[in-house]
């Protein structure tokens, strides 16, 4: 499934009433299986673009297409289900639910997608956590886990429904270099395996080094650059 943006524009209004366009993408298509790095200074609109792509924030203008389907033409209830099935989103702060165990957090998107039984959701969650090296932590609550472990739970949750699009916002920000490299490898390998689109927002040069395509957001404008292998 390809992901495309048509005449996409998002404008914020300051308290003084001043309009500021943070995303302005006339036409951009990401092909199925593509992996790219999204860069831009703080406040350049990376997170806003991710939120719009995930169907969480309606853009001021334009459309986001998953294949032929226009995301914001779907009624909200269907868009929620669509998000559960088609978008994996790894947040910078992981956003795990503290009262649930690691396995329950991972099972959540599957349960909301409504395609698997509770037992199947649990089995798949345990399988994903094992893939992340957390087989001993399936019944741990996030508060009992390290930052790296929480991130891996968040990645497992994002991959739960094997989504065709995986978004990761500064996923390695709180990790040491070795862990960051491992986590990135895990995400990239998984996406490659499922031919899924992977877009990673990161300032980390170690992370950037692995990508052949970089999208840069500057004052809302997007430019895409191919990196030739050295």
């Amino acid at each position: 499934m390809q992901l495309s943006f048509k005449d996409l524009k998002h404008t914020f209004r300051s308290p003084a009433g001043e309009a500021r366009t943070v995303v302005n993408i006339p036409d951009w298509t990401v092909q199925s299986g593509e992996q790219l790095l999204l860069q831009g200074v703080s406040g350049s609109g990376k997170t806003t673009l991710f939120n719009i792509t995930a169907g969480l924030m309606r853009p001021t203008e334009g459309a986001v297409y998953y294949g032929e389907k226009s995301l914001y033409k779907l009624p909200e209830e269907r868009r929620d289900r669509f998000r559960a099935r088609n978008v994996g989103y790894v947040f910078q702060n992981h956003h795990l639910i503290q009262s649930l165990t690691a396995a329950e957090n991972v099972a959540m998107p599957m349960a909301f997608a409504g395609e698997l039984s509770r037992k199947q959701c649990r089995d798949r969650a345990v399988e994903l956590l094992s893939l992340m090296g957390l087989s001993d932590h399936v019944d741990y609550r996030p508060e009992k886990m390290s930052t790296g472990q929480r991130l891996r739970v968040a990645i497992a949750r994002a991959l739960a429904n094997t989504p065709p699009v995986l978004l990761a916002d500064e996923p390695t920000a709180a990790l040491d270099t070795e862990s960051a490299v491992n986590v990135m490898k895990l995400m990239r390998d998984t996406c490659r395996e499922h031919n899924a689109i992977l877009i990673v927002a990161s300032h980390d040069p170690e992370v950037a080094a692995g990508f052949a395509k970089i999208a840069r957001l500057q004052s809302g404008e997007l430019t895409v650059e191919e990196i030739q292998p050295a």
């Binding site: 998000r83 503290q98 959540m108 997608a113």
Partner: peptide
Amino acid sequence: EIAIMRSVGSSRTN
């Protein structure tokens, strides 16, 4: 927590 649930696919009705 509600916002997190919404972000991973829960609907307002849920």
